[in-house]
Design a protein around this nucleic acid. Sequence first.
RNA 1: CGGGGCGUAGCGCAGCCUGGUAGCGCGCUUGCUUUGGGAGCAAGAUGUCGAGUGUUCAAAUCACUCCGCCCCGACCA
Length: 575
Amino acid sequence: MRYSEMFLPTGREVPSDAEVISHQLMIRAGMIRKLTSGLYSYLPLGYRVIRKLEQIIREEMNKAGAEEVHLPMVQPAELWQESGRWVHYGKELLRFHDRHDHEYCLGPTHEEVITSLVRNDIKTYRQLPRNLYQIQTKFRDEVRPRFGVMRCREFGMKDAYSFDVDEEGAEKSYEKMFAAYNNIFRRCGLKFRPVEADSGSIGGKYSHEFMVMAESGEDAMVFCEKCSYAANLEKAEVACPEKKRIFEDDWLPLEEINTPDSRTIEEVSAFLKVDPQDIVKTLIFNADGKPYAVLIRGDQEVNEIKVRNYLGAAELELATDEMIMKTTGAPRGFAGPVNIKIPVLLDYSVIDMVNFVTGANKEDYHLKNVNIGRDFNIQAFADFRVVSDQDKCPRCGGDMKFARGIEVGHVFKLGTKYSKAMKAVYLDKDGQEKIMIMGCYGIGIGRTVAAGIEQNYDENGIVWPMPLAPYQVIITPVNVNEKDVMAAAENLYLALKASGLEVIFDDRDERAGVKFKDADLIGIPLRIVVGRKNLEQGKVELKIRKTGENKLYPLQEIAQEIKQIVEQELNPDRL
RNA sequence: CGGGGCGUAGCGCAGCCUGGUAGCGCGCUUGCUUUGGGAGCAAGAUGUCGAGUGUUCAAAUCACUCCGCCCCGACCA
C-alpha cells in the first residue's frame, strides 16, 4: 500500500495516560485510539495485526479439529439464571433492559450460550466429541481498565468449548487444545510459558494459563529450574515440610505480656525484640459469612485463593474490624488461636514452631511461649501461603525462579459445571442419559498483540516478529523528487506486491529522517532504502529492523532475497 | 467503592497561589530554501480554558456542585 494513501497517524509525543510501553507504542504507531475508559478503536495498522493473529489462531484451531461458530454478544438473563451466574458473576456483567423490559447482558464469556446451543442439537454419543470456537467481542465491566488494550472493557477473544462423553475424552480434548495453544504462541514468535493456574469462579479443577514473559506483566509466576513445574503465583504449591520431632520438654510456660499499640508483625517484633519468624500471625477471614482463623509464620503471606479453595467458599475476604471484635473480643492486631471460638487453620510454615508469640485476643496483649496442642487445637493443617523465593519446587525439590508474565491464554477443564446446571445431556450406547463433560479455552486477542510488543521493541519503536507484522516490507525512496529513484522504488513495490508480499511504499514527500523514524516506530521487519548513490551502482539497501543489520543488494536480486527472508521467518520450525 | 492527581488548541504542557482582554513547544496551512535518521526561514489558522452555579466592576484563576480521565488500593473466567 502507498503510505500517502494510508490512514496512519503516527506521533512523536508519548501520550500522558499511557504507562506501559505497548500502550505508548500502539498509540504512537497509529494502531489504536481510545474512545473512552476501557474502549479502544483499532486503526488500519492495528487491525491488520489483529487479523494476522486471528488467522494464525484459526489455522491452528481448525487443525486441532475445532469448528468456528459465531454466537450473539447480547445474551438473555434467563440463560445466566440457569447457570447461576446471573447472581454470582457480579458487577463485571453489564446488564440492561430492552424495550419490552426484558433483561439482558453483554457477554463477558459464552459458556451459557454454547451450552444452550449444544444441548438442543446434540442428543447422542454419536455426535460427540465436539469442539466449537469463535472469535468475538466480549464485554466485561472492569473495575479499573488500564494498560491500554491489555486490560480493557471491550475486547476481542477467541473462545472455544469442548464437549465430551467422559473424562477420558475431555482429557484428550484438553490436551489437543493445550498443544494447539503452544503452536499458536510459538508461531507468533513469542516467548511464553504454560503455567498451572487457579480456575477461579469459572470453575473446574484443572487449568493452565499461557503467559507471555514480560516484566510489565500483571501476573507473577514461579517455575522450577530443574523440572517442568511452572505455576501462577496464586496457585503455586508449597511442599508439605517434614515435621521434625518436637520435644514437649522444650515447652516453656505460657506468658501474657503487655504490648501497647503493637498490632503489626513489625511492631510486635520490634517491641518484644523477637524475629518475625518466631511470631505467628493470626488472620481472621470471612468465608461466606463464617469466620475462620488462619495461622501463618510472621514473615510469610497468606494466599487467600488457597484458603478459599480449601474451604470451598464462594467468597472469602479478610474479616471486618467488627467481625474481628466479635470473634476474638479484641480489636484488629491482637488475634490469636488460644481460646478462640472459631475453626483454626494452620499453615505448613507453623508446624515446627515452638514457644512462639501470638495475639492474646485482648487489646494491647500478646502471648509468649504458645505451643500447638497444649494451648490450642487446630482444625486443619495445609498449604495456605504464598510461595516465597526460599521455597523449593513442590515436584522435584529444585530451585524455583520468579518471573512476571501477561496472561494471554487460559485452558480449563470445566467438568459438568455448566452441562449439569443447564442439562446438556446425551444418550450413551446403553440408552442411558449422561451429562456432557466440558472444557473451555480462551485467548485474549488484543492482549496477545500488546504482549507481543512488550516483548519486541527498542528505543525506536516496535520490532514486529514477522508473523504478526502488519506489513512485511517497507520501501523507502530517499527523495521523491528524483525521478530515477522514484521509478526504481515504484517498480520494486509493484514487483514485491505481485509476488504476494505485504508491502508499504513510502511515497510521501518527507525527509528521509522522518520516513526512517516512522518505519522504525511501526516496526516493519524489513526496509528497503532506495537512494540515488546506491541506485547508480544498480543497488538498493536492505535494513533488518530487529538487528539493525544493513546490506546492499543488486536491484535484480532484492525481491528474491526478501521473499526468502519472509518465508523463513514465517516458518515456526526455525524456532 | 476508598485515597491521590489531572482537565487550557490535534498532541505535550505553562498560566491559577496573588482575579484584569489566553500562551509555549510539537503538529497543521501557505511560500521559499533544504533533502540518508523526526530540517531552516517567513507568514498564517486553531480554544465554549470539562460543565453548571455562585462571589466580583471583572473569573482559566476564588467557592460550591456535577461530569470525565489517570494513578494507588480493593476487585478480577
